[in-house]
Amino acid sequence: MSAPDAASLFRRDAPPFRAPWEAQAFALTVALHDKGLLTWAEWAEALGAEIKAAQARDPASCDDGSDYYLRWLAATETLIARKGIASEAALAARKAAWERATEATPHGQEIVLANDPLGGAG
């Protein structure tokens, strides 16, 4: 056995999730699968398409696998819009509501949607 190349991309490793949002995004997709709202075949197709599109935009973009859960999240958003579960517009409106709620929440306090000065709906 030769000594492993320390500089190799393949030696880099990391815990399964590098940030809480990655775990949340992962779990949301698994929960949708468990509810029968998506199949793994559909999922693999959607995730594969997102990865391919990202690489087409920037061939080196995901070389170290670090933006993998960004692709994962995008695939979930695309798939649920396609299935009529939640539209792109609905998600965008809700994101804006969370952003307003975040800005209205004093540092250190829990951020909840009810803090949105415009009412949180969206």
Partner: peptide, 14 residues
């Protein structure tokens, strides 16, 4: 004021 990144906001929205 609190802060969440763009991707954190997307996950919360979803």
């Amino acid at each position: 004021m609190s802060h969440l990144s763009d991707v954190e906001l997307r996950v919360r929205a979803l």
